[in-house]
Design a protein around this nucleic acid. Structure first.
Length: 386
DNA sequence: ACGACCGGGGTCTGCCATCGCG
DNA sequence: CGCGATGGCAGACCCCGGTCGT
């Protein structure tokens, strides 16, 4: 608190004493900042305004280099920022440092999203506070900025962010949902309110078209089930829904049930990818001698199968079939396809070692946690060895 | 005590294209 | 024209354990 007060005090001071002398003392304290890990109290505005606008700002470059910023990367990403006369890099660095970001993290953030240094302290503080309404600690926010600086800095519109959060809450998303949304898909919060609204309305319309009775609840529920929805385009989601419907000849009711259940996950796949996966699944099933209705039932029971890339799915199926499991068993318990090829391979080997009879015991053993699986194997090998 | 059933949890950015504005 | 803001895209699963019926 006191720190913040003193910072803005110094900003005022700087505005009053905007002189050449300050340039020098600022440079000095910036170097000090680097060596003593930020004790400086200066907010910038200290770069030479008389520079021609088509060349890079030398004093800015020096500041950035002292902060450990990868200038080459910054230049490649947002060259215009390096030509600006007035920037806020010291202010930003200090701000982030106070929030617990390390020097390395700060440098990485600015390197990857240079425009961050154009935000004012007031703006930063307000935006941070808005994010803090969703998170419990500064550390969580720092870790997201480190992961995805763009999500925090790309938009300069705090009012829109405020309205956006209010909008998400108004949908009935609880604080846990919001946290998951912001943690996993931080870009949701730098979307414009308008864009998020569009997606929500789009989902509600889909629900109504399919004969659903509660569009609001539908939208909220599938958004909370798949936090990536809001960072995808309505075009992508819509095309996927249409492709599912036509290629599997689903009725409205079937499609609605699919979307409300496990089917949400596949909506965010790229259009080509989903198309490819559907096609490849159909082909593989036909090679294995199955009917179209089998494919449809398989997808309805286990939509995630379409999330698995064509090559992976084919080798996974082959791996199971080679391991002595029938396609009929797989159709009955498709969840075994959830597990990695490596996992499946290892388990098949273990099961073969203890002489596990899939025909007698089924294949559910493959769909269990590692702990349970190991316990089971131990029991089985204990029995067979004694 | 056991296993089938079922739902939930982690995870996801960095780049490019376009538009409007000064 | 150059820049800031913003939309959109590619990539392409895996694993765990509570609970309930037997």
């Amino acid at each position: 608190m006191e720190k913040m007060a003193s910072v803005s005090g110094i900003r005022t001071l700087i505005r009053i004493h905007h002189s050449l002398i300050l340039q020098k003392s600022f440079r000095h304290s910036l170097l000090q900042l680097a060596s003593t890990c930020i004790t400086s109290r200066h907010c910038s505005g200290s770069n030479d305004p008389s520079l021609p606008s088509d060349t890079e700002n030398k004093s800015l470059l020096e500041n950035l280099s002292v902060l450990g910023v990868d200038i080459k990367m910054a230049r490649q990403r947002q060259p215009g920022v390096l030509r600006k006369s007035f920037t806020n890099e010291i202010c930003l660095a200090q701000f982030l440092q106070e929030k617990g970001a390390s020097r390395k993290v700060i440098a990485s953030i600015v390197s990857r999203y240079p425009r961050a240094i154009t935000r004012s302290l007031d703006h930063l503080e307000e935006r941070w506070q808005l994010w803090r309404n969703v998170f419990n600690t500064d550390a969580e926010i720092v870790s997201i900025l480190d992961r995805s600086p763009e999500s925090f800095f790309r938009s300069s519109d705090n009012d829109d962010l405020k309205k956006n959060i209010a909008f998400l809450i108004s949908l009935g998303l609880n604080s846990k949902d919001l946290r998951r949304l912001l943690t996993t898909a931080p870009r949701t919060f730098s979307n414009t309110l308008e864009l998020n609204k569009q997606m929500v309305e789009f989902l509600e319309d889909i629900c109504l078209e399919l004969g659903g009775k509660n569009p609001e609840q539908f939208a909220t529920s599938i958004i909370s089930k798949n936090v990536y929805l809001l960072i995808k385009s309505t075009k992508r989601v819509g095309t996927n829904i249409n492709n599912l419907k036509t290629s599997l000849t689903l009725s409205d009711a079937e499609l609605l049930a699919l979307l409300q259940g496990k089917g949400v996950d596949i909506l965010v796949l790229s259009n080509d990818c989903l198309k490819k996966n559907i096609h490849s699944l159909e082909k593989k099933m036909s090679v294995l001698g199955l009917k179209e209705s089998d494919v449809k039932n398989l997808v309805l029971n286990y939509p995630n199968i379409l999330y698995i890339g064509a090559d992976t799915l084919n080798s996974k199926l082959d791996c199971l079939l080679k391991g002595g499991i029938t396609i009929k068993q797989i159709l009955e318990k498709p969840k075994v396809l959830d597990y990695s090829i490596q996992n499946i391979t290892e388990r098949l080997k273990e099961l073969q070692r203890v002489g596990y009879d899939f025909e007698k015991n089924g294949i559910n053993i493959l769909d269990s946690s590692k702990k349970r699986f190991v316990a089971k194997i131990e029991k089985l090998s204990g029995v067979s060895e004694e």
